[in-house]
Design a protein around this nucleic acid. Structure first.
Ligand SMILES: Nc1ccn([C@H]2C[C@H](O)[C@@H](COP(=O)(O)OP(=O)(O)OP(=O)(O)O)O2)c(=O)n1
Ligand SMILES: [Mg+2]
Length: 1192
DNA sequence: ATCCTCCCCTAC
DNA sequence: TAAGGTAGGGGAGGAT
């Protein structure tokens, strides 16, 4: 990612010139507090017209952010979000980082599987070169034996460090610590436990840390003595959401509201964790090895409401104050000490050189946000493709026979169910009636933990938590936040959002495992791939969660006649099973007829189950819930409800009139609640809203000494922001600078390590002053302006605790008119002839509905369709419902991905590919394994910019593959995409490919049956032509009206195009080649190529074929057909002669050694033939349509 | 009324 | 030692 840092344009001096005045003008509107900054601190809260203080209601709230972050029960979502297509998977560079370790583990697994424990020697440690340092708990001899016994290598000396992979030790002298600083120093437990577990465990979990006690495994209680002090310290577990608010609301204090309903889950540990229980835990040695009193199954719907919104620090000062001895203002000692040392500060705060990069790389929240955006883009594109395909499908819907396989086959259809229930997507009013919609809410169970346990099976069933702090790091005073807690850990009251020290107080033996962002993403892709194969519509909620509309899929299952009481639940189980097979992780699925209820159902389903919430049980389900258990309602609403309505229980609130609710919560919110109380939720799934802003902010580690540091940081932030904007090809006209400044009452160092502590927040929005043009993404401009805003506040730089920049009023970056931002466009540009087609200025922002309509009905899509026909704008009009557009999907990268795919997969893909352009042809292709080298045949971007573009294109492609149709394939490519972190992807060497292939094994994880099922579905969907005419116009709705969505005007259907008759006496293995209207051209070609695998193509055949192709192209309707055929031919050639694809390019006709027939010669001959035919077609196309053809 | 701006709030 | 980001819905209150 670093490589694509754009050279921010010239900040231009002219800008500078006008800058000042413009800036001043902007300032005027800011209306800063009248008094000096210092004075402002105190009174700020009140009377500030523009500069507002955030959360004026709890002026003393501590870590505001923390409060929000760890809020609610960590497991819901909602979001009617936006969507936007285009972001690519950023930051995945680091994703690949751990691949190696993972492979190692996998290998180990295989080894084990193969030999079992019976065989005296496993290969578990194969590849490891271990050196044992000093005295160790199991003696050196024992360890050595162990290592050797399991295939590892033992090094008695450390002479050649390079050859040693790991160092085992129980203690290190300071000198050694230094010496081994860059090596993997691990505790003996790593080996011991790996052997015990029968699998090589991640060494990272056993990193040796000096000063750490030697223990066989992490976690162990031990230093309980520190507990006391740490307790008075900062991070106290907080009261549950409900409890805390009760306290705050003085009046009806503690008793009733919430706490009552969850006596279950919230044993002493949960809700009341606060102080009393804390001391209890303190006790000593034996920490609870089992939850206080496992409440086991919560019965009430309110169930798991871990409503304790634990956060690292108390949510508000008010709460904090209620806790005796609690010190929200207690500084983090560690940080305090560090800050005293200039060198430390320089290395550990935002002034460090690559702070931003490092921070984002490790920020889970940043990743969550990024992933969400990416997934939304993915889904959006997939849907577009489906829509297009659907349009041309029309009749090949589902009914027909051929599904004996049962419903599963049909399920494979994926997002296109509308064919069955066309009105589904409509806006639905009365949509809420059961039977009308079937919504599923799918969510992984403790996602991060589950993902982490995939490679740590021995930890299943234990209280595990994911956080940065590992082992006994931080001891009992770690402020590291817990991202996810296993259900076993939750039994102790541990929750996501808590600090590790809080968790340890609840369960001293809690086990911590590190983040594995790469894996989360990989699993998520598998997850989404599977979901998409079953859904009519899908809304990406987060990396581990999605909302599905499976109405038609379920309807189909019903029609299939299969016996079942609950088809929806059956489907849910199918999905759960598939996801489990693919990821080894459990997902839970809530089903109901609207989003609200599906979410509630998930709560009941939660640990690894599915639950169908039916209309008749609505009441009993909802009544006992607390208002903040509804998605979208949080503790603020709970608070308001308590204050203004006297209750927070839905059953009670249901007695209130609509007006009362609105008065208390606001019009919209009140209305929403009113309906929710009755189980009504008319919200529709959202999957294609355009993004409205792009921002970037860091409120961690901000500790400046002077303005220079602040300014530098601001510019770095702007760089990052500019990068993000460029990535999606967007620019903005407005900017908002957000500043977090230490609250005067807060300590200089907050309790949370390097956190922002209690702050005052200032936002200043202003219009970007741009030298030329209306919008920008220029880091210089943004940075400069943002800095001026900050400077104008005149804050003491030492008091700053957070800085953020947000860009609004977005518009397309370069002139692209592409609906899909970024990548689409870049890819588009890459097309050789795209020449001008690109867009016309003006087409960009708004496109009349008519045009949209036109655009919308794109041709079918086809994921794997490499051809792109580019035609100039005017031509396009004339073609009327002409075909449209779509990006090619088999870009060169695809190619490499393709080659790296497992043989059987490739086979299926090819088949699918072929099928797509042809009528269903029952024909099994026997696949061959050539793992051709790759090196994409087509233009490969080489410059940095191009690289960027290429990357974008990849994403795009991948996205496409995610589509329902050929979903079986998507995964792999996706991975591949991720894997490719370097600019290398321009040209992929054979070796590299191979390597990548190994790495991206995600694909293999997809259950075969799923692949099959998906293919079956695709088969049905058969043809959707794959031709794509690239229209420079804005292909997609930027702002499309729902109605447009389903309009389907006439447009060519590739598969129905009658083949021009043509006969030729070609000879394929002594057979004749006949191209007729009814012939399966693809089959013929395949036989041809296959038959001549050992020979160069017959000249006459080539000519004839070429002629036929040209003919097709000339008869407009046949163009697509021709492209399909050509594409198929291309696939075949790559399959058999992939290596030579680009071979003949350089050496223009090498020295004719016609004498001997080499495979190289044959290959080149075939490619040459292909090139000739392609050129010929191109020529015709150019002449006829004025555009160009791009076959890839 | 309706729109716009500036937050707050929520979610993962 | 830790990595407290980020986008959108919606309310309040002023401008139109
Ligand atoms: N404040 C948050 C919320 C979530 N996450 C991460 C960790 C979670 O594993 C993942 C998914 O969030 P969920 O709310 O779905 O929580 P879990 O999947 O962990 O648990 P559950 O079983 O309740 O879904 O997102 C996080 O890091 N910080
Ligand atoms: Mg989850």
């Amino acid at each position: 990612m670093e490589e694509e840092i754009p050279a921010s344009g010239a900040a231009s001096s002219e800008w500078y010139g006008s800058q000042d005045s413009a800036f001043l003008e902007g300032l005027r509107t800011i209306s800063l507090p009248d008094r000096g900054i210092e004075a402002r601190h105190g009174d700020q809260q009140e009377a500030q017209p523009n500069v507002k203080r955030v959360r004026p209601e709890d002026p003393e709230s501590d870590d505001v952010q923390a409060e929000t972050a760890g809020d609610k029960d960590f497991g819901k979502d909602y979001l009617k979000s936006e969507t936007y297509g285009a972001s690519k998977f950023g930051q995945f560079g680091e994703y690949m980082r751990r691949k190696r370790a993972k492979l190692q583990i996998q290998n180990a697994e295989m080894d084990i599987d193969g030999e079992h424990e019976t065989s005296g020697k496993s290969r578990m440690f194969h590849g490891l070169s271990i050196y044992i340092n000093g005295w160790t708990e199991p003696s050196v001899q024992d360890l050595r034996q162990l290592i050797i016994k399991h295939g590892g290598e033992y090094h008695p000396y450390l002479d050649r460090k390079a050859l040693v992979t790991h160092i085992i030790t129980c203690s290190l002298t300071p000198a050694k610590i230094k010496e081994f600083k860059h090596m993997k120093v691990v505790r003996p437990a790593w080996l011991l436990e790996s052997v015990a577990a029968g699998i090589l465990l991640p060494w990272q979990d056993y990193i040796f840390r000096s000063g750490e006690r030697v223990e066989s495994s992490q976690g162990r209680r031990s230093a309980q003595t520190f507990l006391l002090s740490s307790m008075t310290e900062s991070a106290q577990p907080i009261l549950s959401k409900s409890t805390s608010s009760a306290v705050a609301s003085s009046s009806s204090a503690a008793v009733p509201p919430t706490s009552p309903q969850l006596p279950s889950k919230s044993g002493p540990s949960t809700d009341t964790m606060p102080i009393a229980s804390t001391s209890k835990v303190t006790t000593d040695s034996l920490s609870p090895r089992t939850p206080p009193q496992s409440p086991s199954k919560p019965k009430t719907p309110s169930k798991s409401s871990p409503r304790a919104h634990y956060s690292t620090d108390p949510a508000t000062l008010a709460e904090a104050k209620t806790i005796p001895g609690y010190s929200a203002f207690k500084s983090n000692e560690h940080a305090q000490r560090g800050m005293a040392d200039p060198a430390w500060r320089a290395a550990h705060t935002a002034v460090a050189p690559d702070f931003i990069e490092g921070f984002y790389k490790n920020s889970r929240l940043h990743h969550l946000s990024t992933w969400k955006a990416e997934l939304k883009g993915l889904v959006q594109e997939a849907q577009e493709r489906v829509e297009r395909g659907f349009l041309c499908l029309d009749d090949d819907d589902l009914g027909d026979g051929q599904h004996e396989a049962g419903a599963s086959d049909r399920d494979a259809y994926s997002m296109r169910g509308t064919a069955v229930l066309p009105s589904l997507k409509g806006k639905g009013k009365a949509v809420d009636t059961p039977e009308e919609r079937v919504i599923m809410h799918c969510d992984f169970d403790c996602f991060f933990v589950s993902a982490g346990l995939v490679d740590r099976p021995h930890l299943k069933g234990k209280p595990v938590v994911v956080c940065h702090s590992q082992g006994s790091q931080g001891g009992l005073s770690s402020t590291s936040e817990i991202a996810s807690a296993s259900y076993e850990a939750r039994e102790f009251g541990i929750r996501g959002g808590m600090s590790l020290q809080q968790a340890r107080r609840l369960c001293p033996d809690v086990i911590t495992i590190p983040y594995e962002f790469e894996k989360y993403k990989k699993l998520s892709l598998l997850f989404y791939t599977i979901l998409m194969s079953h859904a009519d519509d899908l809304q990406a909620v987060s990396v581990d969660e999605a909302l599905l509309d499976v109405s038609s899929t379920v309807a189909r299952r019903k029609l299939s006649g299969t016996e079942s009481e609950d088809h929806a639940k059956d489907l849910a189980e199918v999905i759960r099973s598939q996801v489990w097979k693919a990821t080894s992780c459990e997902v839970s699925i809530g089903i109901s007829h609207n989003i609200l209820l599906a979410r509630l159902a998930t709560r009941r389903a939660k640990p690894a189950k599915s639950y169908h919430l039916l209309a008749n049980e609505l009441s009993e389900f909802i009544t006992p819930l607390d208002i903040d258990e509804l998605h979208g309602f949080g503790h603020k609403h709970h608070q308001k409800a308590q204050e203004k309505l006297g209750t927070t229980i839905l059953g009670e609130l249901a007695k209130k009139s609509r007006g009362v609710l609105c008065e208390a919560l606001g019009k919209g919110t009140g209305e929403t609640l009113y309906k929710a109380l009755r189980g009504i939720d008319e919200k529709k799934l959202e999957s294609d809203k355009p993004r409205k802003s792009v921002s970037c902010e860091i409120n961690y580690g901000i500790r400046f000494q002077n303005n220079e540091e602040a300014e530098t940081f601001m510019h770095q932030l702007a760089e990052e922001l500019g990068r993000r904007l460029d990535k999606i090809d967007m620019k903005g006209r407005s900017m908002t600078v957000k500043i977090m400044k230490r609250d005067p009452k807060a300590p200089t160092e907050p309790p949370k390590f390097m956190g922002h502590g209690v702050c005052e927040i200032f936002n200043k929005q202003c219009t970007l002053v741009i030298p030329a043009g209306r919008a920008t993404s220029d880091p210089q401009i943004i940075g400069e302006q943002a800095w001026r805003v900050l400077k104008a506040f005149n804050f003491d730089p030492k008091e700053l605790r957070g800085i953020g920049i947000q860009i609004q009023k977005l518009e397309k970056g370069s002139a692209a008119t592409e609906p899909e931002p970024g990548q689409a466009k870049l890819q588009f540009e890459r097309l050789k002839n795209a020449a001008k087609v690109d867009e016309t200025p003006g087409t960009r922002e708004e496109v009349p509905v008519d045009q949209l309509r036109h655009v919308c009905e794109l041709p079918p899509q086809a994921a794997p369709s490499p051809a792109v026909l580019v035609i100039p704008e005017k031509e396009k009009e004339k073609q009327d419902a002409a075909p449209i557009v779509d990006l090619p999907s088999f870009s060169q990268v695809d190619r490499s991905v393709f080659d790296a795919l497992p043989a059987d997969v490739r086979q299926e893909l090819e088949r699918e590919y072929k099928r797509r352009s042809e009528s269903p042809a029952p024909f099994l292709m026997q696949r061959r394994g050539s793992r051709a080298p790759s090196v994409g045949p087509f233009a490969v971007p080489t410059s940095k910019t191009m690289f960027k573009g290429a990357k974008a294109a990849n994403l795009k492609r991948i996205t496409k593959q995610l589509a329902p149709r050929n979903r079986a394939v998507l995964c792999p490519s996706k991975n591949k995409l991720f894997a490719k972190s370097g600019p290398s992807f321009v040209k992929v060497s054979d070796a590299e490919l191979k390597k990548l292939g190994l790495d991206s094994d995600v694909f293999n994880m997809l259950p075969v049956d799923l692949q099959r099922e998906q293919l079956a579905g695709a088969r049905q969907a058969q043809n959707v032509g794959k031709l794509s005419l690239k229209v420079p116009l804005k292909p997609r709705r930027i702002t499309r009206s729902p109605s447009v969505k389903w309009v389907r005007p006439p447009f060519p259907k590739a598969r129905y195009i009658p083949l021009p008759t043509l006969k030729q006496q070609g000879r394929v293995k002594s057979d004749k080649l006949y191209f007729t209207e009814t012939d399966d051209v693809q089959n013929v070609i395949e036989k041809w190529v296959e038959g001549f695998r050992e020979y160069p193509p017959n000249r006459r055949d080539v000519e004839y074929f070429e002629k036929w192709m040209v003919q097709c192209v000339e008869s407009r309707r046949g163009t697509e057909r021709a492209l399909d055929v050509a594409r198929w031919w291309l696939v075949l050639l790559r399959r058999y002669f992939g290596v030579w694809e680009r071979a003949g390019e350089d050496e223009e006709k090498g020295p004719g050694e016609e004498g001997r027939v080499t495979s190289e010669m044959i290959g080149k001959a075939w490619w040459k033939a292909f090139g000739e035919v392609k050129d010929k077609m191109n020529e015709v196309v150019r002449k006829k349509y004025g555009g160009s053809l791009s076959l890839r």
